[in-house]
């Protein structure tokens, strides 16, 4: 059962990659980046889950037993913040590109030849 979840997560990651590689609209590419980012974050959270585990909140009246791993939750929060910064920058660049080129289609934005 849990293996299915992991594989679904990786499938989500691959959907994001497909979106980045195949789509021609800049906004869709950014959405692809966001999808694959969230797939990795989700996988990190799922890796830390244990069966019938409870949330890792320490309070005075609760017994500490069978908590899920708390470290990935802290780490994923950091990675979400990084994702926020990247996404905001990408969107700002995309808006500037629209201002200059008047299009979101990357096949028309190809003045640089690699």
């Amino acid at each position: 059962m849990t293996h299915t979840l992991y594989i679904l997560c990786l499938a989500l990651f691959c959907i994001g990659l497909y979106c980045i590689l195949r789509k021609r609209n800049i906004i869709k590419i950014i959405i692809g980046v966001i999808i694959s980012e969230y797939a990795v974050n989700l996988l990190f959270i799922l890796v830390a889950y244990r069966m019938q585990g409870r949330s890792p909140i320490y309070s005075p009246d609760a017994a500490i037993e069978n908590m899920v791993d708390a470290l990935p939750q802290a780490v994923v929060l950091t990675s979400i913040v990084i994702g926020l910064a990247t996404t905001a920058l990408l969107i700002a660049i995309a808006m500037r590109i629209y201002e200059k080129y008047k299009t979101f289609d990357i096949t028309k934005i190809n003045e640089l030849r690699g």
């Binding site: 926020l84 969107i91 808006m95 500037r96 201002e99």
Partner: peptide, 15 residues
């Protein structure tokens, strides 16, 4: 976060 929001919104108004 609020500065990011304002920056994106104001950029759009200029455009």
């Amino acid at each position: 976060l609020f500065a990011i929001f304002i920056a994106l919104v104001l950029l759009k108004f200029e455009g």
